[in-house]
């Protein structure tokens, strides 16, 4: 592969299968051959229904899960099958912000310890004083204050907890942040605060985001490019505004059409054609072709035959 400096993350044909308990030969095809590139400093939005594999995809990229096959390049380095010891320095460069601000913070640790843990794990600081300084500095950057450092997670509101999560992710000064639905659990008025904060950090530090969400209006707003996943496959990748204006894949089209954007009531009461059907259950054996055919009202038999 030719090394392209402008590419932060490249995923090629990523596959992740999970074994099914009790049935030795069957596997759940969670991610089924996903490929995409994320340029330095850009935000790549990943959308899709629950269970389509977007979170699994992010977790496999960051090697929480071992990929079944395929390659993951972080700044041109293939990290997909590295041993843990080799991988360790790369972990510093990619961090994750989790969906549930209530579950992702250890209830028995103070905020200071939560944010300092990555520093300790990677042994970046030589003295305790340096750790304190960096933690306090980070707390102020995410809009909290020094006094918060000795409190526990349960004393904070959802929005504040998500700020702690962001502080923990940013403390190692990584270049790539995987945001797994960072705003889904927050109230509307707080969502905007967190999104603005993430955007500010991106401008200031030149961060690259992989932004997973199901709120399409927010994804369109934050992302440069958007990938739409369906049943473990990437069905469409496109520039954010373009994908809204001219969605190509029928599934994408349906998603945009059905999503309740904020519009004046009269406009939003136009008739909608419902997307029929439920999607192919625990996709142990997903349909061969564009998996959408089970759902898509417009599908033709031709689509069934081969995967585009």
């Amino acid at each position: 592969m030719t090394k392209d400096d402008s590419i932060m993350l490249e995923v090629r044909n990523l596959v992740k299968h999970f074994p099914v308990k009790g049935k030795k030969k069957e596997v759940v095809h969670a991610v089924e051959g996903v490929s995409f590139r994320v340029k330095k400093g850009e935000t790549f939005g990943l959308v899709g229904e629950s269970g389509c594999g977007k979170s699994t995809c992010a977790r496999t990229i960051i090697r929480i899960y071992e990929p079944t096959s395929g390659q993951i390049f972080l700044k041109g380095e293939d990290i997909s099958h590295m041993k843990e010891a080799q991988l360790h320095p790369f972990r510093k460069n990619m961090q994750m912000i989790f969906q549930d601000p209530y579950a992702c913070l250890n209830a028995r640790m103070t905020v200071h310890d939560i944010i300092a843990e990555p520093l300790r794990a990677h042994k970046v600081c030589s003295s305790r004083g340096e750790i304190h300084d960096r933690v306090y500095d980070m707390l102020e950057k995410v809009g909290l204050s020094r006094e918060h450092a000795n409190r526990y997670a349960h004393e904070f509101s959802g929005g504040q907890r998500q700020r702690i999560g962001v502080a923990r992710a940013l403390i190692l000064k990584p270049e790539l942040i995987l945001c797994d639905e960072p705003i889904s659990a927050l109230d509307v008025s707080i969502q905007a605060q967190v999104v603005n904060m993430l955007k500010d950090f991106q401008d200031e530090l030149g961060l690259t985001y992989l932004f997973i969400a199901h709120d399409l209006s927010m994804v369109r707003y934050v992302s440069d490019n958007i990938g739409v996943m369906y049943l473990g496959q990437m069905v469409e990748i496109c520039e954010a505004n373009e994908i809204y204006a001219h969605p190509l894949h029928p599934y994408t089209r349906d998603c945009w059409r059905l999503f309740r954007f904020l519009r004046p009531p009269r406009q939003s009461r136009k008739r909608r054609v419902p997307l029929r059907g439920i999607f192919p259950a625990p996709f142990i054996r997903p349909p061969a072709a564009a998996s959408i055919h089970a759902v898509n009202a417009r599908s033709r038999s031709a689509v069934n035959a081969n995967r585009p």
Binding site: S157, G159, Q160, D187, V188, S189, I190, Q191, A192, Q193, V195, N196, K199, S217, M218, R220, Y221, V222, A240, Y244, F261, L262
Partner: peptide
């Protein structure tokens, strides 16, 4: 404030979202 916190479909990406400061 609530309505402004939801990005409009045509909102320019360089425009900051209007957020309501503080918490409930």
């Amino acid at each position: 404030g609530l309505m402004a916190s939801v990005p409009d479909i045509s909102l320019d990406k360089n425009v900051r979202l209007v957020s309501i400061p503080g918490s409930p």
